[in-house]
Every structure is written in structure tokens, then in C-alpha cells.
Amino acid sequence: MLTLRQSPFDLFQQLEQQLQTAERVPAAEVRDTETGYRICLELPGVERSSIDVKATDRSLVISAERQAPEAAADAEGADPLLSEFRYGTWSRSFRFPSGIEREGITAQYRDGLLTVTAPKAQTMTSVTVQVEA
């Protein structure tokens, strides 16, 4: 017989850790237009140089890092009483129903909002396979 030797408090701690991790993933909006896909992500407080966008034939991977300020304490030397800011790295991937044109992808970052435009691939490759007896 299998017994679970975990206190309910341990379960709450695991849940809190999962929620903290989930909060690091930015909110996204993906739109399917006639010519391509437009992905918008909220990235407040993220430096433009830390954003990385990579593409394959049908997917897009966006990653970034939000770094903590150099001085953790304020000008008076006091530590924060409460801090709900999240720092660290994260990565999101998006897979599209049709291929994308990797060379035509553009990305703009302004006012904490990253907008990536990925045009749809114009040529679709298909292969005919002969069935042998």
C-alpha cells in the first residue's frame, strides 16, 4: 500500500511556488491575419537587449529576462517591507497551424509591449508517396 507522507502545508508551499512561476510568464495575444500572425506580449520593466526571438518553420520562441535593480535597498538603506515584483528569466513558445516565413519576421518593443509579426509562408511543400506492393 502506498502512503502519502506529505503535510497539507507542504502542498500549499508547492502551490505557492507554482503560482510564482506562472506569474513570470507574460500575458500574450496571438492574432491570425490573412498575411501572417501577430503576437503581442506584455513585458514591463524588461530591457530590450534581454529579449530573444527565435523561429523555426512553424514555431516561434520568445524569451527574456527581467533583472532586479542593482541596489536592492532604497536610498535610505531600508529593505522593502513587501515586494511583489518578479525577476528572472522566462520563455514562451507558439506553434502555428501553417508555416511562417522566417526571414520576414519583425519585432518591435515599445512602452513594455513586444509585437512580433510573422508572415505566413507562401509556398507549402507537399510530397506524393507511391505505395509499393
Rank of each mutant, 00 (worst) to 15 (best):
A27V: 14
D32R: 15
L82S: 12
T128A: 15
D10M: 08
M1C: 05
T125H: 09
D111P: 01
A64Y: 06
W90S: 00
A118R: 02
A107G: 03
Q130K: 12
A118L: 04
F85P: 00
E34K: 11
G104P: 05
Q6R: 11
V61P: 00
A121F: 05
L81A: 07
L11W: 06
Y87S: 12
L82N: 11
E84C: 02
L60D: 06
L113Y: 00
S126H: 15
E84Q: 05
T3I: 09
W90C: 01
A55I: 04
F12E: 15
C40I: 08
V25Y: 14
K54T: 13
I51R: 03
E76G: 03
L19M: 13
A73V: 13
T89R: 15
T123I: 10
D32K: 13
P44L: 08
Y87C: 11
G36R: 06
G88E: 05
T115P: 00
D52T: 12
S63L: 00
S49V: 06
A133W: 00
Y37I: 07
Q17V: 03
I62C: 04
R38Q: 12
I100V: 08
V53I: 14
Y37T: 04
I100P: 01
A27F: 11
I39H: 03
R24K: 15
L43N: 03
R58M: 11
T125I: 09
Q13G: 02
I105P: 04
R86Q: 11
K120T: 09
Y37A: 05
R86C: 08
E29D: 14
D74I: 02
R66K: 15
T115V: 13
V131Y: 00
E16G: 09
Q108Y: 05
S50C: 01
A27T: 14
S7L: 04
E76C: 02
E65R: 14
I105A: 02
A75T: 02
Q67T: 14
Y87V: 12
M124W: 01
S63T: 02
E132V: 07
T106A: 06
T106H: 01
R5M: 06
R31G: 06
T35P: 00
Q67G: 11
S98Q: 08
P80N: 02
A68R: 15
E132S: 07
A28G: 10
P80Y: 05
E23A: 13
Q108G: 15
R38D: 03
